[in-house]
Simulated scan of single mutants.
Amino acid sequence: MGEIRTRSDCYSQGVPRPIDQAKRETLLRDIRTYISDNGLADLSLRPLAAALGTSDRMLIHYFGTKDNLLAQALADQKPAFHLIFDNVDSRPALQSSLRTLWQSMTSGEDVQSVRILLQAMGIACTGPGRFTAYVTTMFDTLTDALTHAIQRCGSAPEHARIEATVLAATFRGLLFDRLITDDEDRTSAAVERLIHNHAG
């Protein structure tokens, strides 16, 4: 009679356990919070695992490598810019949407995404690397959304792209300022000036 092999026997011989997708999503959420609070530059699996109440071996089981873990964590850190700007078709609506974006990025649901993006930007500035594609995609996503909105407000495509670039780049600079200095009054006043001068 042949030997009966159990499910446990299979795993003990190197067959990987199936991924618990709900657990994986929970881990990704907690990883993003950890990155937002502790930074990207010196991220190490062992301290990350300890903070999450798990092991570095378990993180490898779910994500394979540290770089893959980071790639998957960052993939979901993309604010839904199209939801803010897709219905904009007038300058007053554009100004209102820019104020909504600033509020969301400084005190709303996109604060965590902004903290992670700004950290990735700082690292990407040192040279091409694993965060360059993520940062470039984030830049393009906001600039594209603004470009289409500004075109619907009546600007020619070539002018709309430049206007969008000025708005997006200045927003990022002011977000850096706000995150570092925590000066709400000054940075918010600067955003109002930006909106008045470039979106009015």
Rank of each mutant, 00 (worst) to 15 (best):
L28A: 04
A189L: 12
R5T: 04
L98F: 02
A164S: 11
S12H: 15
S12D: 15
L27K: 04
G200N: 13
F131M: 05
P79L: 06
T100H: 08
Q151Y: 07
D144K: 13
R152Y: 04
I35N: 00
L146M: 05
P128Y: 15
A80Y: 09
C125M: 14
A93W: 01
D86M: 08
S8N: 11
Y34H: 15
R99F: 03
A51Y: 05
I4C: 04
R161Y: 10
Q13I: 00
H148Y: 11
G64V: 07
I60R: 14
L117M: 12
Q95L: 00
L167K: 01
G108C: 10
V191Q: 02
R172G: 09
R161P: 04
E192G: 14
A80W: 05
L94M: 12
D9G: 11
T136M: 13
V135F: 04
L98G: 00
D86N: 11
F81Y: 14
K78A: 10
T6G: 02
R17C: 02
D67G: 08
D37A: 15
V15Y: 14
R7H: 13
I195V: 13
R91C: 00
R99W: 03
R24N: 04
T126I: 00
D76W: 01
T137G: 15
R130Y: 07
S36M: 07
V135T: 07
D89K: 13
R186L: 13
R24E: 09
Y11P: 03
R17F: 08
D89Q: 12
T170I: 10
C125D: 15
G108M: 09
Q112L: 13
S8D: 12
L174C: 04
G173D: 08
F63S: 03
A41S: 14
S97H: 03
A169D: 14
R91H: 08
A156Y: 09
Q95I: 00
S113W: 01
I162P: 03
L142T: 03
D144Q: 13
G53L: 07
T126M: 13
R172F: 10
L142D: 03
R172E: 09
S113L: 00
E25I: 09
D37W: 11
L70W: 07
F85G: 03
R161W: 06
R193D: 06
K23W: 00
P18E: 08
Y134C: 02
H198W: 14
R57F: 12
